[in-house]
Design a binder for these strands. Structure first.
Lengths: 200, 200, 200, 200
DNA sequence: TATGAATGAGTTTTCATTCAT
DNA sequence: TATGAATGAAAACTCATTCAT
C-alpha cells in the first residue's frame, strides 16, 4: 500500500471515529454531516471525497465497528476460556465472557441499535481474516465433539444472536430483566443450545 | 367511555394505521408527517391534535403494533399446539408456529426493526389484559413441570428474544441463513433453552 | 346595564386579565390565543364571541390597561403632592411620585413596550371620565400661574412622554443609566420643561 | 480585513437592507424570512449562514439602523448649527434640526417602533467611533459652560429621549398633537432641560 | 352562548449535496 | 486534494380562525 493510500485510509478512519463519537452521544439521525466534518476537522466537501454520501459512511461505520468489536469480544472470551479443563466449562466461561464483553460495549450497542447483526450477517466470514481465524480457533475445540462445521456455524450464530439480543435489552433498558438477573438464564440457555445442536 | 372519546380513539387508530402502511413501504425516516396526514385524509394540524410530534406517533405505533402482533402470534401458536399430546410436542409445535407467525409478520418486522422488544420490554404484562391471560394459559401447562412462575417468565422471555432475533435476520436479509435453513436449529435451540431452564 | 351585559363585561375583563398575565411572562407575540383561553378557562370559540380577533384583544387590552395604570399613577402622585406648600414643591413631589409609580408598573411597561402612549394618544381625554377629572384637578393648580389650558395640556403631555420614555429604558434595561442615577436629572428636566412652557 | 470577510460583510448588509425595506412596507411580524431572502436574491439556507435566526437579524438590524440614523441626524444638525453665534441659538437650531431629522426618518421610526433606544442604550459610546467623535464635537461647545462631562451626557441623553419619544407619536400618529403643533413646545422643553441641567 | 375538533396556509429551520476556487 | 459558501428541497410544526354541535 502506497504512502498516499495509507494516508487516505487514515483520514477515512478519523472521519469514522469522529462520526462514531457523535452517534454515541446524539444518535445517527440527529447527527448532521456538518457535525461530523467539524469534529473530524475537515471541510464539508472533503467528506464527499471519502464517502459517497452519508449512508455510505453509516454502512461502513457499522460494518467496521461491529467487526472490530466482535473481534475484541472473541479475543477476550478466548483468553478467559483458554485454561478450561473440559468442554463444558470452556463453553461456560466463554459464554460468560461474551456477556461481559457486551456489557463493556454498551455504547456500541446503542449506536448499532441491535444492528450488531450487520456484522453477523457475514458470519462466519466476518470480513476480517484475523477474525475468521480467531473464530475457527475458538470453535475448533468443539468440532471433534459431534459437530459438523456447518452445524457448528449455525449453532454459534444462534448462540450469538441469543446473547446479543437478550443482552441488548438488558443493558440498554434493564427491562424486563437487568443483565445480572438474566445472566444465569442466558448462560444456561446458550449452553443448552450448544448441547442441543450437537445432538442434532 | 363516552362516544366522543371512542371517536377520538378511532381516529387515532386510523392515523396509526395510515402511518404503518407508509412505514412498511417507505421506512420510518422517509415518511413525512405530510404523507401520513394525506393518507389518513386529515389536515396537517389535526395530526398534532392526536400526537405531540412525530416521535410520539412512532412510539405509540411501535407499542401498539408490537403488542397487537404478539397477541396474534400467541393466538395462532396456541391454536396449533392445542391438541398436542405431551409437553415436548406441545412446545415443539408452539415454537414452530411462533416462527411461522414471524414469517407472516415480515412487514411488521421491517418497520419495527427489531423493536419488537418495545413490547417485550413490558413482558409478561404486555399492556393488554387479554394478552396477559393468553400468555398465562399458554405457559400454565409448563408450570407443573418443574418451573417456578418466575423461572418460566425468564425462560419464555429468552426464548422469545431468541426466536425474534434470529427470525428477523433470516426473514429480512436471508443472511447468513435463510429461515428454513435455520428453522430446525432454532426449534432445537428454543426447546433446549426451555429444558435447560427447567432443570435449573 | 342589564345583568346579561354585566356578565358579558365581566367575562371580557377576565379574558383580558388572563391575557395580560401571559403577555407579561411570555410577550405578546409568543402568546397564542390558545394559551389565553386555557388561562381564562373558556373554550377556543368563546374567545371569538368577545373579540373580533387577536389584535382586537390586544388593542382593547393596551387601552384598558394603560388607562387604568395612568389613573393609578395620577392618583398616587396627587395624594403625595396634596400637602405641598408652594407650586414648585408641588410639581417636584408630583413628578417624583410619577417616577415611583413607573417603577411600580415595570411589568406593564414591558407588555406595552413603550406603548404607554397608546393611552397618551387620547391625552388628555383618556377615555375614562374619572381620569379626566383627576387630570384637571391636578393641573388646575397650575392654570392660574401663567398657563393657558392648551399650553398646559401640551406641557403636561411633553412631561409625561419625557418621564415615561426615560423611565422605560432606565427600568427595563438600566442602560445607559439606572433609574436612581437618572432620577435627579429627570426631575430637574421635567420641572424645567414646566417652567419653560409657562413662560412661553 | 481579508477580501473574503469584506464580501461576507457586504452580503450581510445586503440582507439587512432587503429586510429593512420589507419591514418598512409590511412591518416586522408580517415579513417572513422567505420574503427577505427573495428580496435579497439569495437562497433560503444562505440566510442562516449569516444570521442564527430571524430574531438575530432583527437585533442586528435595529442596532445597525438606529446607529446609522443617529449619526445622520447628528451630522445634519451639526451642519445646520455650525454658524450659530451664541450658545442659545446653537442649541435651538440644533434641536430644531434634530426634530426635522426625525421627521425625515419617519419610515425608520415605524420599523424601530420606538426602539431607537436600542442605540441610545449604548449612549454615548454608540458603537461607531465616528459617531462618538461627532457626539463629542457637538457637545464640546457646551462643556465650558458649566457642564461636567458626566452631567452633559445625562442631559443629552434625556433631551434625546424627550425628542424621540414625542416626535415618534407626533410623526406616526399625529396624536394627540401633530409635529408642527408640538414642535415649539418641544424645542422650549429641550432647551429648558439643557439649561436646567447646567445649573444643577 | 358555549364548545373544541378540525383546518391548512404559513413559517421557520435543517441539511445533504454541489461546485467554483 | 481540500475548501466552505451556496443551494433549495423538504421537513416539522404553529396557530388564528371556523363551524357543526
Amino acid at each position: 500500500m502506497s504512502a498516499d493510500q495509507t494516508k487516505k485510509l487514515e483520514k477515512k478512519r478519523r472521519i469514522i471515529e469522529s462520526a462514531f463519537e457523535l452517534f454515541k452521544s446524539k444518535n445517527i439521525y440527529n447527527t448532521a454531516v456538518d457535525d461530523i466534518v467539524k469534529a473530524a476537522g475537515i471541510a464539508r466537501g472533503t467528506f464527499y471525497l471519502y464517502f459517497k454520501d452519508k449512508s455510505d459512511l453509516i454502512e461502513q461505520l457499522v460494518f467496521y465497528k461491529s467487526g472490530e468489536s466482535m473481534k475484541e469480544m472473541m479475543l477476550l472470551a478466548a483468553k478467559r476460556a483458554a485454561d478450561a479443563q473440559d468442554l463444558e466449562s470452556y463453553a461456560r466461561i466463554f459464554i460468560d465472557a461474551l456477556i461481559d464483553a457486551m456489557v463493556g460495549q454498551k455504547e456500541l450497542l446503542t449506536v448499532l441499535n441491535k444492528n450488531m447483526s450487520a456484522c453477523l450477517r457475514s458470519f462466519p466470514s466476518f470480513g476480517d481474516p484475523e477474525a475468521v481465524e480467531l473464530y475457527h480457533s475458538i470453535t475448533g475445540r468443539l468440532l471433534d465433539h459431534g459437530y459438523t462445521q456447518e452445524g457448528l456455524d449455525r449453532a454459534a450464530y444462534v448462540v450469538f444472536e441469543l446473547i446479543s439480543a437478550v443482552s441488548y435489552d438488558a443493558i440498554t433498558y434493564e427491562k424486563p430483566f437487568g443483565i445480572e438477573e438474566i445472566r444465569p438464564v442466558l448462560v444456561t440457555a446458550a449452553l443448552s443450545v450448544l448441547r442441543g445442536c450437537a445432538a442434532a
